[in-house]
Design a binder for these strands. Structure first.
Lengths: 332, 332
DNA sequence: CAAAAAAACGATTGCGCAAACGTTTCGATG
DNA sequence: CATCGAAACGTTTGCGCAATCGTTTTTTTG
């Protein structure tokens, strides 16, 4: 691997001149600049960004710490963040915590050792040691999706609006008995969606039986079991609201296992749109979270935070979009 | 940010002792080791991996250069690679080339500047400048999915086997007129699947009209248009084989637009399984590519390559799995 | 035409670390 | 009790670079 001093020697100039030519950090006469560029080409010099980072104490890297990168919702967010960071000349370290807080802390420590300029985090559940760590170490950080700590900038979907629009849609179609399949307990998204559901239903003057609210679904299997439980009730719901894509897959599975038709026998709708939704039956009525916007805004905020550590914190709630299809019909 | 020499001062030992304690690279008496560890805790020392990398000329990083990270197929591969690298103590830089060869070259140069230990690449189409670059610069590299250059280690699906199994399945169901919606022209996957399709059909003694082979579908929109063209034929195919997930989405869209039922009016099957496939109609018969295995093997090969630059190159073809569902019925 | 200012470039340091090399101490050995 | 060897630790260098500080040459100005 060649170094800057080899370039200097080949070009017959000093290392500082080479450096200044390559970084355009001070005037160098065209003749010398040409010599330098020729020497670079000739010996095939590739600047060493590691040495550069050490000297500049800035790496141009961002840690992206996601709780489950295989989840298509997060895939979309990762994609948007990568695109935005790339546009800004930053490069992304991708890490999957697998929803394990200990692993999350370990990964964040590792990223910190690598001196990432900042971190974008979809935090796991409690305990929130990693957030304490980030705060204490003063690492620029933006929280995405799960917004639970206003010591940091945060970007996510407006869950209250999302649920409210879904409930509106349900009530318009005369549904009164609505079951909801929620996600992992403890996540702020779960908490917010639960609260929003209760509130929105209450506003419509509808009382929700305790049994209609299914919390603690960590996997599609959990969601399947929960949905079965809902449908076994003597007075089962006429509609099921799946609060995320895992819940939806699980719910659809249960519905399929029971041989029910959607929306004839049961209405279904939920949160998290996906690309196939338009071409398969049942065509699911879904709230699309604004993944692109979330990703872009998260990158924006992080870059701003890296730029000035003492700017005021921001929490940004972006509006989801209801895609009305046919899985939610009129109540019987 | 604290440094190793501050730790040394706080512990009353030399920097080398601190270094050796932290890296366990030589014997240090328990007393001094304890002093060091206490000093580390007290002043909150975080080793600087950038400086370490510079000194060791090895970064413990891997570049993951993917042509479209939002594609669920690649998402799965990314997930598997991240998991395997993480297990081996490597961390992954994620880059999206958006199938642009120039961008690909630029990203690879950038990664090389950052002195990644190796690169895993899902290459874009021609021109293959980035491969030449990687080869000339002697960067450890593994190609995934698109295998077209045996200067490198390569891992992918056995496309010939995949197509053969699909054709077998079609022929078992008495289909003779089979249209195929292929992906981007120039990709080795496209070429291989085209060849395999011709060969497998020929083996069955079935002649494939030129119009049944639709090449050059760069997007779902292309695939939709191509499928429409296939279905407008005076003697249209009785089955459509979508050679990847984008082609499938496009095909399904066209079929839906024409109001056709699957499999009653037209049979459909393809490559690339997805999580929802079991719970929606039509339940698609699909070849699942072994994404987990591909990712794991790619990381394996890369680590081996990093370990010894002169080991023989390997090309690994992993077996896909046919998931028979109901979208492909008996031919009329 | 001397003095000052500006233009162009070079020598050197230090970023934080690993480890090669060097030093001290102390017990074993003849 | 000199000598040797090993155990335990310290001093120092150099990884490749950016940029500070310094030097030389050229131009401007009174």
């Amino acid at each position: 691997m060649t170094t800057i001093s080899e370039v200097a020697k080949a070009a017959g100039v000093s290392v500082s001149t080479v450096s200044h030519v390559l970084n355009k950090t001070r005037y160098v006469s065209p003749e010398k600049a040409k010599l330098v560029m020729e020497a670079v080409d000739e010996i095939g010099y590739i600047p060493n960004a590691v040495a550069r980072s050490l000297k500049l104490s800035s790496t141009g890297t961002v840690g992206l710490v996601i709780s489950a990168i295989s989840n298509p919702y997060f895939s979309d967010i990762i994609c948007a963040i990568e695109a935005e960071c790339s546009k800004r000349g930053l490069i992304v370290f991708l890490c999957d915590t697998q929803d394990d807080p200990d692993r999350e802390l370990e990964l964040i420590r590792h990223l910190h050792q690598r001196r990432v300029d900042g971190i974008i985090l979809a935090a796991s559940g409690a305990p929130k040691k990693s957030l304490d760590y980030l705060f204490e170490c003063d690492v620029p950080c933006v929280l995405v999706d799960r917004l639970s700590d206003d010591r940091f900038d945060q970007v996510g979907t407006d869950n209250t609006a999302a649920i409210r629009m879904l409930v509106d849609h349900l009530v318009t179609l005369h549904h009164q008995r609505v079951g909801i399949i929620l996600g992992q307990p403890g996540f702020s998204t779960t908490v917010e969606r639960t609260e929003a559901f209760r509130a929105a239903m209450a506003e419509k003057g509808i009382e929700v039986p305790h049994a209609f609210i299914s919390n603690g679904n960590r996997s599609t299997a959990d969601a399947t079991a929960s949905t079965h439980r809902l449908l076994e009730l003597t007075e089962p719901p006429t509609a099921i609201l799946a609060s995320n894509n895992l819940a939806m897959i699980g719910a659809m599975r249960a519905i399929r296992e029971r041989g029910l038709r959607v929306p004839a026998d049961i209405s279904v709708l939920g949160i998290d749109d996906f690309e196939w939704a338009d071409y398969f039956e049942p065509r699911l009525t879904l709230m699309a979270q604004p993944c692109d916007e979330i990703g872009r805004k998260a990158a924006d905020l992080l870059i701003a935070r890296i730029g000035s550590k003492h700017r005021p914190r921001e929490t940004v709630r972006l509006s989801p979009v209801l895609r009305v299809r046919e899985s939610c019909g009129e109540a019987a």
